[in-house]
Design a protein around this nucleic acid. Structure first.
Lengths: 113, 113
DNA sequence: AGCATGCATAGACGTATGTCAATATAGACG
DNA sequence: CGTCTATATTGACATACGTCTATGCATGCT
């Protein structure tokens, strides 16, 4: 089953308990978010006007090796938080807003009536 | 700095990049959510009518040892997702909805206008 | 064709994490 | 007080993870 589908089928945490399969899928995404470098990478891509960021822009923002950044980008891609596209020599990463939205909904606390 | 304060000060990922300190704080919380067992525990507590769950209720829901459940509860407590209170022989866990709400806001995608 | 550049992959290494069995602690109750 | 029950802590172990260096693979350029 696709990860985004699992997120779509998972009820908000405050509504009912997750079953094991839902929890496993959701946990994969949160685990990807559970690293400071990946969070910063994601926020760089997500907040970028135009929505696209070249890998070189990201690498320049950290004092980490290029392979390390590449590794983190791969992790974010594997959980459908980012997509990438190669154009000419450069690879551009983009946010997948649906995934972020599903996570937000999952955590959302129902408005106090 | 307190964790909840860091969450309150952190802008939505789609608005601007997180700085290193914000990312470190936020990552701690997401890391706690990045385990299937903890997610299920959290959803059990969060979705419970009355808001309180006794540890024994949680232990009974998993085929894991009692110390393992206790460990996961501790992790969730350390990132301010849960609080606990002892009454008589039992310990009751409660959701901290503010933390969940801050996380949700952090991930929220601005409505498409 | 050959080289330079941008990014990905492979492998190695230390540290962190999830789990358990064993033990400790705290409260209830005889 | 002693003991039972509910939960927490400790220590051990295997596995996963973040990082690096070295290398591979495209693409563009001369």
């Amino acid at each position: 089953m696709e990860l985004l589908q699992i997120l779509e089928c998972s009820p908000p945490l405050t509504r009912e308990p997750l079953d094991a399969e839902q929890a496993a899928g959701v946990a994969r995404v949160f685990k990807a978010l559970g690293d400071p470098v990946r969070l910063r990478i994601l926020s760089i891509v997500a907040s970028r006007e135009g929505g696209e960021v070249c890998v070189c822009d990201i690498t320049g923002a950290f004092e980490l090796s290029q392979p390390t950044i590449s590794h983190h980008l791969k992790v974010l891609k594997e959980v459908d938080l980012l997509t990438s596209e190669r154009r000419a020599s450069w690879v551009y990463y983009r946010l997948v807003p649906e995934t972020l939205g599903e996570l937000s909904a999952l955590l959302g606390v129902p408005a106090t009536v």
